[in-house]
Design a protein around this nucleic acid. Structure first.
Lengths: 152, 152
DNA sequence: TATTGTTATACTCTATAACTATA
DNA sequence: TATAGTTATAGAGTATAACAATA
């Protein structure tokens, strides 16, 4: 048994979209993590910042539902973002069980930098695709993601 | 702050292919995991079985390289597959550092069942795409995966 | 009774270093 | 010296149950 000429990507799996999604998802996550590490953030922190940036104040349960993060896990993530001065939790007068989470001014700035980094990584990831191909890919993936959410 | 009408998929992130890949990869992994749980297997076990099924005997380092699994992690995975009677490690006469890993007869059967399950999950995942769209998606993802491997 | 935020626990995946035996 | 398999450890993501405060 000598080492065979191994394809970088195993043919046995390259035909499965499921496997490709898992593999590319991990790759994208890794690239992105390296870039945002300098900000002291990990991917879920960034998902939260971008979501708050687009939607304004949200209760924790809404953030959790939107991002598919467990409520229980979200607590520590928000504690960390609070310690960094990027978000604040304020009580909701109308329903005192809920905490309104919103970006601070520093949080708004950081969200903008995160968005810029995301665009850079995106460019590197899709470098070999034409504009039309990238648009087609994005459109199909968005449809699949919506289908997946409906199935929950 | 009343609960806003939350899109299932947050608009702030749905435009990023990177985020969609991560999210869909996790979804695909979850669907697949549920199905193969009945076989006592987890995704990396299946990746190994399918790779051995296609390539025959491989040394552990080759499996690890091909599948992007750490050599150190692979040891336990192969121990588990061995305990299930699905693979065997045999010494390589030409290089006694290397162990040839190959499927047993039961392993061949299980690999076939895993492949069938993978096709089912694939069907569910891509249900809303036309044949042409699915082929286009698969082709683009495969290109991106090869690009990613070259960049390593 | 149900929901929100919280604490605690456990399992998987990932990353790293170090050891042994062989080359 | 370098490589293959192994052991051990720690961080990160995920899933679950249970609790207090509030609706």
């Amino acid at each position: 048994m000598s080492s065979p000429d191994l394809d970088a990507l195993p043919d046995a799996l390259s035909g499965h979209v499921g496997y490709l999604l898992v593999r590319l998802g991990k790759h994208a996550q890794r690239l992105f993590s390296l870039e945002i590490g300098a900000l002291g953030l990990r991917p879920p922190h960034c998902d939260i910042l971008l979501t708050l940036s687009a939607q304004g104040a949200l209760a924790q349960v809404d953030i959790a539902t939107t991002l598919h993060i467990e409520r229980a896990h979200l607590v520590a993530l928000l504690d960390q973002l609070t310690a960094l001065g990027l978000v604040v939790r304020t009580p909701d007068a109308a329903d005192r069980r809920r905490h309104a989470v919103r970006l601070t001014e520093a949080g708004v700035d950081t969200a903008a930098r995160v968005a810029a980094i995301a665009r850079e990584v995106e460019g590197a990831l899709l470098a070999d695709l034409s504009e039309a191909e990238a648009a087609s890919l994005r459109s199909m993936l968005r449809r699949l993601a919506r289908d997946a959410d409906e199935g929950d």
